[in-house]
Design a protein around this nucleic acid. Sequence first.
DNA 1: CATACTTTTGACCAATTGGTTAAACTGTTT
DNA 2: AAACAGTTTAACCAATTGGTCAAAAGTATG
Lengths: 204, 204
Amino acid sequence: MKNIKHQNTEEKILDAAKEVFTEEGKAGAKMQMIADRAGINKSLLHYYYRSKDKLFAAVFKFAFGKMASRIFDIFKSDDDFFTQIEKFIENYLSAIIKNPFIPMFILGELNKKHNNIAAELIIKSGVNIDFFEDLVNEQIKKGNIRETNPKKLIINILALCVFPVIAKPLIEPIIFDNDKNAYNEYIKNRKDEITQIIFSQIKP
Amino acid sequence: MKNIKHQNTEEKILDAAKEVFTEEGKAGAKMQMIADRAGINKSLLHYYYRSKDKLFAAVFKFAFGKMASRIFDIFKSDDDFFTQIEKFIENYLSAIIKNPFIPMFILGELNKKHNNIAAELIIKSGVNIDFFEDLVNEQIKKGNIRETNPKKLIINILALCVFPVIAKPLIEPIIFDNDKNAYNEYIKNRKDEITQIIFSQIKP
DNA sequence: CATACTTTTGACCAATTGGTTAAACTGTTT
DNA sequence: AAACAGTTTAACCAATTGGTCAAAAGTATG
């Protein structure tokens, strides 16, 4: 479901750029494709965003922000820790499923060696997990959860959430014999599976 | 450690192409870069591999073969199931660590929408997990392991192995505060962590 | 309506890129 | 040494690509 609404040119460009960059990668995306998708002249791209690099940076910031910013907010709620974990998994997973190309886009660009604007943007982003670490350590002290390394914990959660989505073109044909429904069903039930695995790791 | 040995031109090209394609992606890789890296003339690339697509296909087949073919062989050994799982994790993880760019390369190209040669190659590859599924079901019947979905099991193992490596440019700065040693130490101990998680999921 | 400002366009450009071709080089066979 | 096949190179080409520019089209202001 796309935004068919009357949007101004700058927004139209950004939306088109998001699509093309995530579908083709930075190098594979062409300014002409983006212009066509936005239904405008190529010169207009340069009028609003002076260069491909600048346009890419805008899209990457948006994508990274969508997946990284405020995802830890859930841990600032009043819920007990297990509920927080469960909600985190639910929220993060649904964010990925709603935007399946974004995690791949971020990881793909970050792993490029040459002219890696994305890597610079990450450094400047200032995202950190201090709050989550403090919270986990506090829960350990209280005896609510087992001795647990917070860094390892969060990576495991992210791995179990992200991988099945970015590896879809591998999983669907090889593991689910190209059965689209089987794959979708698998993803739908994924939240409970991950929650169970993580709980079994931290419950005393 | 690269092969500085006297290799024939075809091998030199393939090695250079592997490097450049994995570092830059298909669209980002330029034939001239590959020629330079191989220390030869650009025309020679076309002499041995007629087009960029053909050269890419050769590299992708190699990369996919390296990560996918025979990785399930370990489950045909005489070891008991738990030892097989442990060895699988060990082998797969060390394969990824030895070639950290390959999984990202495969996933990145598979997720491209346009002119996706990689996706066609996967379909033709014929890799399947039937043997693994049979084995797991047999182990359940024997009562050696809990009721376990083999598809879910293998995806979880792969997720826990692959993600920490392909997400390195995210994990190292954000989770390990740019501490290279901390990240490396984490990866080094990863095998035991994954094994423990998986065992806790399948042990009766 | 006239002026000034912003937005949009098409024509154009220089650089890059994948690919071609014919000539030159190498080693082997006759 | 001539003929031959396989290998390597430099020069070149057509298409693509990111980007520029001046003119045109809107739009607002007085």
